[in-house]
């Protein structure tokens, strides 16, 4: 919270120092300013929904891709490698364009901007999630599998009740990073017209012609959002560790 206050203060200071700033566009005291502000903020829900949906999917897909990567079977492992290397090589912006403009022609489905964004972001992130999960699962001691084996747990029960709960606790910081990354990358979906934070700012710049102030507000929007996410992740980490101490 202190950081947020500090950065707001910093920006206002900058504003005061330069005659080039025209804060009236987003002055909440005036009718025009406050309607501009609420126009900018109206993208917030989309940004959050887009990011949360995409990361939920990418976590699941990432886990499913990680599992064959842990196999002793070479074919299964190479499925994992090919997927990770291939997906990781595509720039997110390119993937967004391809999914939105290309996929409907290949798959013969109508796809709206939201789902095109979700699919592209999730696909791109899933390769990173797969690597995170693979490393996390590999860090669990082999004795945990042997103990599970000796009490007759199936492979899926071993994963679900023994390995993943421990692995997820370890990869939580990395998952938090991915969520932050996802929130930032969701701004790219503005190019296909998704009305999220960045798109709203772009639209307002076109009508108001005040890019400096409007993009500064945009920076602050992402900053606050991400600081809140970081704080929430730290709280979650602390809580999960407390489980063990009690």
């Amino acid at each position: 919270m202190r950081i947020i206050g500090l950065s707001v203060a910093l920006v206002l200071l900058l504003a005061g120092c330069s005659s080039n700033w025209g804060w009236y566009v987003v002055n909440p005291m005036t009718d025009a300013g406050s309607s501009n502000l609420s126009f900018l903020l109206s993208g917030l829900g989309s940004t959050i929904l887009l990011s949360i949906t995409a990361i939920s999917i990418s976590v699941v897909v990432g886990l499913l891709i990680a599992l064959p990567g842990l196999s002793t079977n070479r074919t299964l492992r190479s499925i994992n490698r090919v997927y990770v290397e291939f997906v990781r090589a595509i720039p997110i912006l390119v993937l967004i364009l391809w999914v939105y403009y290309g996929l409907p022609q290949v798959a013969d489905v109508a796809i709206n901007v939201f789902w095109a964004g979700v699919i592209a972001l999730a696909l791109s992130d899933s390769a990173f999630q797969a690597e995170i999960f693979r490393a996390g699962i590999q860090s669990i001691d082999k004795g945990q599998y042997e103990a599970s084996h000796s009490v007759s747990l199936s492979y899926s029960d071993t994963m679900r009740f023994v390995i993943l709960p421990q692995a997820i606790k370890r990869i939580l910081p990395a998952l938090g990073n991915q969520l932050v990354y996802m929130l930032k990358m969701s701004s790219l979906v503005s190019v296909i017209g998704m009305p999220e934070l960045t798109r709203k700012a772009n639209e307002l710049v076109v009508t108001e012609y005040r890019p400096l102030e409007i993009y500064t507000i945009l920076v602050l929007e992402y900053l606050v959002l991400i600081l809140i996410v970081s704080a929430a992740m730290r709280w979650l980490e602390r809580r999960m560790q407390a489980d063990e101490r009690q």
Binding site: D141, Q144, E146, A147, V151, S152, L153, S154, F161, V162
Partner: peptide
């Protein structure tokens, strides 16, 4: 299912309570 095993390093499940360690096998398997 017929053979129990005790390891040098115990290999208890660290994220589960003692009772949960004991009941996981009976409940799931």
């Amino acid at each position: 299912a017929k053979v129990g095993m005790v390891f040098q390093q115990f290999n208890l499940f660290p994220h589960l309570t003692v009772l949960e360690n004991l009941t996981l096998g009976p409940v799931r398997a």
